[in-house]
Design a protein around this nucleic acid. Structure first.
Lengths: 152, 152
DNA sequence: ATAAATAGGATTTTTTTTATCCTATTTATC
DNA sequence: GATAAATAGGATAAAAAAAATCCTATTTAT
């Protein structure tokens, strides 16, 4: 399984929201522009994030997204797996039937180990931490827009 | 970047060879059958492995492949990267230009860390170790064929 | 009621992966 | 040297996955 662009966009989106705080509503358009994500594509991604309980979507005029949980309770693993499903490095570890392997395959064991490490590292990265430090969305991005400065 | 089937086939191939010892010649056909790899596809993979100095190809009648190095000097990272290029988890870490990131992006840092761990884990897995233990190609596979038993 | 915004399903485009086809070349053996 | 057995290597096709967009419907502030 691959870490797709959709997963990267998801991380950017949640990070952007985290920088604004838990309950601040941000329009899809703003997020899309600031994170360099195609707007309609972001809509798809947000739906998955909403299903996973990570953000809430407000429809209608002045709609947008807002983080549902405290950024310290959201980590990269949760966000990424909300989009691409459980991370696995290769087919071998996912569908043993595609492999001539017995259950105790030494190569398989290595793949599993690597997979665990990736998942653990992502799990430890909370968005509270990420938002505190420099990040993808800042300072390359300008500071959050105020209502008076909304892009038309 | 994804760990493709080609990379998995490569690992199986080298593991199969490692089980036979450094300088034993094994036909492509035999490897393909025993590792459940499409024959022509294995040819492509073997060419990459040969370019990477991992095995040698003997053409012509009674041709085949043989491990070029001692199995203890070949590891999964080298084999996998010979096929798919340097492992990276996501675009973000590979092409910073696709990302609105500054150089010190905290999310990027996490991706890099995860990537390092995967690469290190694969690097530590030598084929001497893998061949010693149960593995993909044994015992699900029957023991190595002897000349007298060659598949026609 | 209207306009602004997102939802959600269908579809398209693009890219990547997987695999095969075909001709050429190499090598053992007779 | 001729022949048959193997693999090489480039081109191409088929399949799958990813990225993105289109279109209509629905929701909500004003």
């Amino acid at each position: 399984m691959k870490i797709t662009m959709a997963a990267e966009y998801a991380v950017r989106c949640v990070l952007y929201l985290a920088k604004h705080g838990q309950d601040v509503l941000v329009s899809r358009q703003e997020i899309a522009e600031r994170t360099l994500t195609p707007g309609k594509f972001l809509a798809k991604i947000a739906q998955d994030l909403a299903k996973a309980g990570i953000l809430t979507i407000k429809q209608g005029a002045k709609g947008g997204y807002r983080l549902r949980r405290d950024p310290k309770d959201v980590n990269m693993l949760v966000v990424v797996e909300a989009i691409i499903g459980e991370i696995s490095l290769n087919e071998c570890t996912v569908r043993p039937s595609t492999c001539p392997s017995s259950l105790d395959c030494s190569a398989n064991l290595i793949w599993q180990r690597a997979r665990q490490q990736v998942r653990e590292t992502l799990r430890q990265a909370t968005f509270a931490d990420l938002a505190r430090q420099g990040s993808c969305c800042v300072p390359a991005f300008p500071p959050p827009l105020h209502a008076s400065e909304q892009i038309p």
